[in-house]
Design a binder for these strands. Structure first.
Length: 289
DNA sequence: ACACTATCCTGCAGGC
DNA sequence: TGCCTGCAGGATAGTG
C-alpha cells in the first residue's frame, strides 16, 4: 500500500483519535511482524499518553509521554483502523481479514486502534524520542520530497556520475525519502523523463541540472499533493481511517495502465510496462525521453 | 562505491 | 471447482 501520500493520509486520520489519548491496554496477537516486537513492548506502551503523531518518509512516529516514541512502518500491506469498543465489533467472523489484526491499542476513550497487516512486512519499535535522528533507520534517510530541500540542484548533485536508471535512484530512500513505485512512475511521466534513462545523463558536464531534470522536482511535488488531496491510492489494502477508499488510483496516468493510450495531450504513444530491479515500471516511450 | 538479486509473507488474478 | 504461477504499494542483506 503505502507510499508517502498513503502514510500521510493515515497519519491525518489517526491523529485526532491518538493525540492526547492514553493507551489503556495493548493486545499483541503475535510476537512479531517483520521483526519481533521489542522486549516488554505492550507493557512499555500501556499507560502512556500520546503527545504527537508525526511522519518521516514512510514512518509514523508517535511521541509518548515518557521520552520514547513508537515507530510504525506499514510495509506493503499494513493499515490502521479505528473501531468502537463495543463487544460485538470483535466478532466479525465473516471478515477473514480479521486474522491479520495483529496489534490493538485500546484507548481510554471508547475507541481502539487496530493494526492489520496480511503480509507482515510492517513493523513497530520503540526509540527514545531524542535519539530518532541518529537511529540507523532514520539517519540515512534522504530529503522529504515535499520540502524545499528537494529541488533541481539537489537532484543534480545526487545524480551526477550515476549510471543507474533514474527510477532506481528516485526509489532509493537515502536520496529522497517517501517515494515508491507508483509515484516515481507517475512523476517521471509528468516530467516527461524516461525511467530507463541513466540518472547521470540528466546532469550537464558542469554538474547543472538539464532542462529535463529541472522539471522533475515540481512533477514529484505535484503528484504527491494531488494524491494527498485524494486521500492516497487504494489498490487493495489502503483505506482512509474512516474506512473510505483513497481515490487517486483513478488519476494514474501510467501506473498499471499497460497498453492504454498515453494521457499526455497530443501524444500518440501507448503505456508500456518494463521491469527494472525486479519491479514493474510503467511509462510512455513516445513522450518520456 | 555501485548495481543488481533474492528474500521476507499473504492474497489475488489468470491460465489450464 | 482447484491447482499452479506470477505478481503486488517496501526495504534490506548479500553478491559480483
Amino acid at each position: 500500500m503505502p507510499e508517502l501520500p498513503e502514510v500521510e493520509t493515515v497519519r491525518r486520520g489517526l491523529a485526532p483519535a491518538l493525540v492526547g489519548a492514553t493507551i489503556a491496554r495493548v493486545e499483541l496477537r503475535r510476537h512479531d511482524l517483520r521483526f519481533p516486537f521489542p522486549e516488554r513492548f505492550a507493557a512499555r506502551l500501556q499507560g502512556r499518553r500520546l503527545l504527537d503523531l508525526r511522519r518521516r518518509a514512510k514512518y509514523l512516529i508517535a511521541d509518548l509521554d515518557d521520552g520514547d516514541s513508537l515507530i510504525m512502518h506499514l510495509g506493503m500491506s499494513g493499515s490502521f483502523r479505528i473501531d468502537d469498543e463495543t463487544p460485538g465489533a470483535f466478532h466479525r467472523k465473516r471478515d477473514k481479514n480479521a486474522a491479520h489484526d495483529h496489534v490493538v491499542l485500546h484507548l481510554g476513550h471508547g475507541k481502539r486502534v487496530v493494526y492489520n497487516d496480511p503480509r507482515r512486512f510492517g513493523y513497530m519499535l520503540l526509540i527514545a524520542t531524542n535519539k530518532i535522528d541518529e537511529d540507523k533507520l532514520f539517519r540515512g534517510l534522504g530529503v522529504e520530497p515535499l520540502s524545499d530541500a528537494l529541488d533541481a540542484a539537489f537532484l543534480a548533485g545526487a545524480f551526477r556520475g550515476r549510471a543507474a536508471p533514474v527510477k532506481a535512484l528516485l526509489l532509493d530512500q537515502r536520496l529522497v525519502a517517501g517515494l515508491g513505485n507508483i509515484y516515481v512512475c507517475e512523476a517521471l511521466h509528468r516530467a516527461h523523463v524516461s525511467p530507463l534513462r541513466a540518472a547521470g545523463s540528466l546532469v550537464t558536464a558542469g554538474g547543472r541540472p538539464t532542462a529535463a531534470l529541472a522539471r522533475l522536482p515540481l512533477a514529484i511535488k505535484d503528484v504527491l499533493k494531488d494524491a494527498l488531496k485524494a486521500g492516497g491510492s487504494s489498490l487493495r489494502d489502503h483505506r482512509q481511517i474512516d474506512g473510505s477508499l483513497g481515490y487517486f488510483q483513478h488519476s494514474f496516468r501510467v501506473y498499471d495502465r499497460e497498453g492504454a493510450a498515453c494521457p499526455t495531450p497530443g501524444c500518440k504513444g501507448r503505456i508500456a510496462r518494463a521491469v527494472q530491479s525486479g519491479r514493474s515500471t510503467f511509462h510512455c516511450s513516445a513522450c518520456q525521453k
